[in-house]
Design a protein around this nucleic acid. Structure first.
Lengths: 223, 223
DNA sequence: ATTGAAAGGTGAGTACACTCATATTATGCG
DNA sequence: CGCATAATATGAGTGTACTCACCTTTCAAT
């Protein structure tokens, strides 16, 4: 994993990847992401070629693969930004943090769908794969695993707070895992939803979250 | 969609795809499937090339794509057989049909996992995509949509019977849809499960089905 | 049997993701 | 500055899924 050093020259150590290099790398990476995202959203994931991305980013085609292992990976990095943004957004929404768990979870998925709305094909192509727990069969990048973990931890912490409030019983890590699967299921539904404004999805989301929390409250987790 | 005429010459109509042709086609298709499955299971999905499949099946590479739109599609046809076999198996198991819903559903997924066990990589590559409701974004074959539907109807009918027995409340079609998602989730878990004999998956399966049915019985569906 | 047309087969060709041997550039050190 | 080394960039090359223009076979009608 690349170190995230800032601009200042680091103290002399054995392998200090130095200032200018690091800066250029970060910049190139950002340029690639910007170009790729623009193309993906205008032409769609499948009709955008890696050749075009590299040409528009002003680099050789091979260079692209120094930064991103696969074309899918490239897409995942966009998703990573989305998820990071989602977490940051939630943490800035103070009122939401006092709302009920069902409201919080609804808001999170809702916001997410809103943000990725313009990139529907794109989401269909790679998103589901991302939320899937990484298996030895899926040759995904390590960074994407990290993303998956960050997201799971974020949800787990939310559940832990709700647990302290005695809104739900103790579930351990499994709760976050289940929510991730639920998120995946909702995205699936959303992709297929033809209703205007995707209102069917929102209705399903609202209802199922309320049901779930209600079940948990009434029945507890250990049967 | 190809017509499913049997061997007998059909009454003279405008486009009767006639006997020998149809028979050869069916036969070729079966040969391709057999060869492909053999290679997939021995070398893995990704390391098997369409060139090799066609060579071993004794046809030109182009011909392969007259029968199957994509390599993934080929994999899906195998899954189709699996699902069809699963349904047939269930219908032959008379005692099982008197068992509780939870037992039935457990048996179905269990049997399924047992059958696809030897093709793990394969399942990871295509199975999840199959159970996903077909969207306009996923360029899958129509036949695969049909498979998805057949499976959903099968489950829906099971639930309807349980409903008549008053084991569960009325849920409409959504029940089958939810079960399909659940099935998908279990497969995901199964792929990742490192316990011997995949016993963790079986435990999760057993427990979650019992919980679900119990919840439905106690609380009903409309909250 | 002949024939015209439709179904089906063929494999060289194409497009594209990805690799790798080589060239270029940045950096630390004397 | 000049040099050695490591990091990074390059683009021709490769492997493979998939296409398409053409060829062959089958069939019904005569």
């Amino acid at each position: 994993m690349p170190t995230r050093t800032s601009q200042h020259r680091p103290a002399s150590s054995s392998r200090p990847t130095s200032g200018r290099r690091q800066q250029n790398k970060q910049k190139t990476k950002q340029v690639i992401l910007k170009v790729a995202l623009d193309l993906f959203s205008r032409k769609g994931f499948y009709r955008t070629t890696t050749k075009e991305i590299s040409r528009k980013a002003g680099i050789a085609e091979g260079t692209l693969f120094n930064y991103f292992r696969t074309k899918e990976d490239l897409a995942m990095y966009f998703m990573e930004d989305q998820i990071a943004g989602l977490i940051a957004w939630f943490q800035g929404e103070k009122p939401l943090q006092r709302a009920s768990l069902a409201e919080q979870l609804f808001a999170i998925i809702h916001r997410h769908l809103e943000r990725v709305g313009p990139y529907e094909e794109f989401v269909g192509a790679v998103y589901l794969r991302m939320l899937q727990p990484v298996s030895k069969l899926n040759p995904l990048s390590l960074d994407t695993q990290a993303l998956s973990l960050r997201y799971l931890r974020f949800i787990r912490d939310l559940l832990a707070v709700a647990e302290e409030r005695e809104e739900i019983p103790h579930m351990g890590d499994i709760g976050a895992y289940i929510f991730a699967l639920f998120h995946m299921a909702i995205i699936t539904y959303w992709l297929y939803d033809q209703s205007k404004g995707k209102e069917n999805t929102l209705a399903l989301l609202d209802r199922s979250l309320k049901v779930a929390v209600s079940i948990l409250r009434k029945g507890g987790w250990n049967w």
